[in-house]
Design a protein around this nucleic acid. Sequence first.
DNA 1: CTCAAGCGGACAGGATGCTGTCAATAGCGG
DNA 2: CCGCTATTGACAGCATCCTGTCCGCTTGAG
Lengths: 155, 155
Amino acid sequence: MAPSAAIPFDAPVNELVLEIFRLNGALIKCGDALVKPLGLSSARWQVLGSVVHGQGSYSVARLADNMGLARQSVQRVVDELAAAGLVAFAPNPAHKRAKLVVMTPRGQEVFERASALWQPVGDALIAGVEPAELRSAIELLAALRERLEQPAATE
Amino acid sequence: MAPSAAIPFDAPVNELVLEIFRLNGALIKCGDALVKPLGLSSARWQVLGSVVHGQGSYSVARLADNMGLARQSVQRVVDELAAAGLVAFAPNPAHKRAKLVVMTPRGQEVFERASALWQPVGDALIAGVEPAELRSAIELLAALRERLEQPAATE
DNA sequence: CTCAAGCGGACAGGATGCTGTCAATAGCGG
DNA sequence: CCGCTATTGACAGCATCCTGTCCGCTTGAG
């Protein structure tokens, strides 16, 4: 046998992992180009989306948890968005330090414009894909992620 | 209708994209932890894999293309791997500047140990998943990536 | 053979994400 | 009420990947 053929490179798991890496990079690149005219980036856009999704009732730590990122990563982006006037900090009646991240009117408008830019691109991306197949893939990826995020089960 | 309900957050495309981002982060984190005892990281491990896959006949630019990354990103990692004695540069008879990246014996050994660490984890990750479903997901992701990488078709 | 175009690498700088550490706030058991 | 622990944000430093620019090597047209 060949010296390094213990795990074939074309094993389905490995193919999937490499495809995730490449698709992740392609999505970030596409998003960056898409919202660049609005002064956004993929990262800022995604944070804006999380703020909208939380309806202004999320702290930075909560946003980070929802996005699966470290708090400091999100904190930096939120600070930049606040400096750009797209989000603001509202006092949290339940926690003096953990202020709530809320959208400013300008942030709302920018996000809606980004959504308008994204809609046709997103539609084209999945054009012709069977909804059931898409749903199946999403659930598979979610299941794999959950396994990765709780590795303490066997240790 | 609600002010920002033009594109629902739970649209399948958006779910998929967010899941890709989260899974990508989880995979990198898992890989970092897995090969840390070997002095590797996810990025270095992936580059090593590409070098092995190319059987020592790839230049840095070629490796980057295969991985879907920019040349400079791969160049930096390769330089670090070379400094660590895991890879080396072999003269390229066809191109004086574009040296070939080859594995050193130590690099071979480290990569094989990483593969041994990964095998049970990778197997456990896809345990219970229908091979057909896995294959279907891989092909879906690959198709989406190809659409993203050739956006010039409509412009 | 000469030179323009293209490819590959070197260098600089920026964006995004992580970990580690510390201070302030909340919540809870004694 | 006091102090311990957990949570949250601030700050510093590092890893990874990107773009932009320049230079050397290769190739091909003339």
